[in-house]
Simulated assay, not measured.
Amino acid sequence: MSKWGWIVVGGGVLFASLLTLWQTEQPRRVQAKNVFATKKIVVGTTGDYKPFTYLNRKTNEYEGFDIEVIRSFAKTTGIDVEFVPTTWPTLSADLASGKFDMVVGGVTKNIEREIIGDFTSSYLSFQKTPLVRKEDAKRLASIEQINRPDVTIGLNPGGTNEQFVRKTFTKANIVMYEQNLDIPQAVASGEVDVMITDTVEAIHYEALDKRLAAPRIQEKWIPAEKSYLVRESEGDVVDVFNLWMQSHEGQEEMEQLKEKWQVAS
């Protein structure tokens, strides 16, 4: 957790001033190899979680809100960024083993991930929600309505959505999909009845496909926060990223990208 949050109360301080102050306060590093010394950060991402991260197969480039945030941060701090693939089941192990320095792409904060790394400040609050066919928007809009033997949930392995589904919907049928991107289409075609995801992804697909709906549920599901997970040995990244995100430039950039990618809870 950054100790510099008190500096930016009011949100009007320039990032350059904050970075200079941070640099003067740092002790001499025994270990010279970090992302600011090497001028490069390696970032893991699943590439399957719109609008946060998506691997465009035509360009073979990653796109999405989180991808652009990290590119903007890297440009501001003068470092190069390399994106490498990971999966939801292997995300934590890949980070702990040093495959990359941080992981981004709709990552939800939880204790298991905090144990193996450090989270930056949150950039979005949300809750879990269903994505259904438009004609089922009223029929499948609560835990009680979905948690039935005649309801089938499409699920991607390894993330917090799987944890929530297996704990909450014990009576529903579950069909596993290796690719998270395949589940909205499976819902739309009637292959499954429901996808359990976060409000941002559900709203994204509701706008993208007229066959789909993100019911405005009346009950409280699990609230959560999106953040970026950084390898423990790269604590400087957390501090500097938080400084950037809380600075005037960082706040402005985040808001512009949220509007561009329609990232809202």
Rank of each mutant, 00 (worst) to 15 (best):
N156R: 11
S125P: 00
D94A: 07
N173V: 02
P130E: 06
T160Q: 11
L181S: 14
G5W: 09
T46R: 07
T120I: 03
T168E: 07
G158N: 04
T129G: 00
L131N: 02
D80N: 09
L91C: 02
T38C: 08
A214L: 09
L257T: 02
V35H: 03
I116R: 13
L155T: 01
R216A: 01
I174H: 03
D101I: 09
A16N: 11
F73V: 10
E114V: 01
A214W: 11
G78I: 07
P85V: 03
E25I: 00
R28G: 01
Q26A: 15
V237W: 15
S92Q: 12
N56I: 08
R139T: 07
V35D: 00
M176L: 14
F73D: 00
L18R: 01
A137N: 09
A172H: 00
M1T: 00
S72R: 07
S247Y: 05
D150E: 14
E82H: 10
S233R: 15
F73C: 04
G117P: 01
M195V: 04
V9G: 15
G154W: 14
I79F: 12
D193L: 05
K128P: 01
I79V: 15
V81W: 08
A141R: 14
K171S: 12
W261G: 00
D193S: 12
A202F: 12
T108I: 12
F73W: 13
L243A: 04
E206T: 04
S72G: 10
N180G: 09
K134Y: 10
M102S: 06
A93D: 09
S17D: 11
T86H: 11
S72M: 03
S97K: 10
A96C: 10
D118I: 11
E249I: 06
G190H: 12
I7H: 11
N110K: 08
L95Y: 08
T90D: 08
I217V: 12
A186E: 03
T152Q: 06
A207E: 09
N173A: 15
G105E: 12
E61V: 14
R57E: 12
E225C: 02
A74F: 08
E178G: 12
G158I: 05
I41S: 04
F164W: 14
D209R: 02
E144P: 03
G47C: 02
A141L: 03
P184I: 02
K260A: 10
